[in-house]
Nucleic acid binder design. Sequence first.
DNA 1: ATGCCTTGTCGCACAAGA
Length: 261
Amino acid sequence: MKIATWNINGIKARLETALTWTADSQPDVLCLQEIKCVDDAFPAAAFEGLGYNVAVHGQKGFNGVAVLAKPRFDEVRPGLPGAPEDAQARYLEVTVSGSFGALTVASIYLPNGNPVGTEKFDYKLAWMDRLSAHARHLLGEEHPLVLAGDFNVIPEPLDARNPDKWAADALFQPASRARYRALVHGGYTDAIRACHAGPDVFSFWDYQAGSWQKNDGIRIDHVLLSPQAADRLAAAGIDRRTRGWEKPSDHVPVWVELDLG
DNA sequence: ATGCCTTGTCGCACAAGA
């Protein structure tokens, strides 16, 4: 069972790129973020043509998440619980099932939070608190569970080529990092770090200032596994080759392989 | 110090991203 996540930065601008990577990489489940379109505008038919079921939680112009899955959806739950007045489309949770049993996957687009000291940063921290509470709740189900997406958090200095540059940024604030740690320490495994302990493991390179050419990257796209999923972790990786393609997203796909049997 | 790019928008500049 291969599960991938990719902040696509606009599905309309990136459809051919997304289809090419998906057809080539054949994830069983693909979580997308920043689709930047409403539900009806998502090119569902193109992915259905590749054999995927499509779930979308969209928003006009900004944000928006989706899940594409080869197995059928048993349940589709849009929105992160805990704030019914929050209109930003940043969370979509599905349960799929098959011969492998039941698997829950969430596509997450955590708020950026910049600039620090504004209501945007407060929103980020509050959103992380809601995510932590919900993630704790989900562990009670005691079945394989994958939280995948753009967390907009650089967990450790090792996760940036130039950590000093990010010191004042919302992505690397102590308060952001502490909440990410609390989420993981609640019982999740950071799949990429479980498989790759060293430096130069990045998922994002800014469009500006030649960041890709200089490999000035950061690791902010994460895949967190419940204990029942972590026990089946076979491999994890980051597919950085897409960053060198024509008209790339500034993020690249991150994936895990689980031996669910 | 700021913008550097890129996307989507009731475009002809701007917000938002990271």
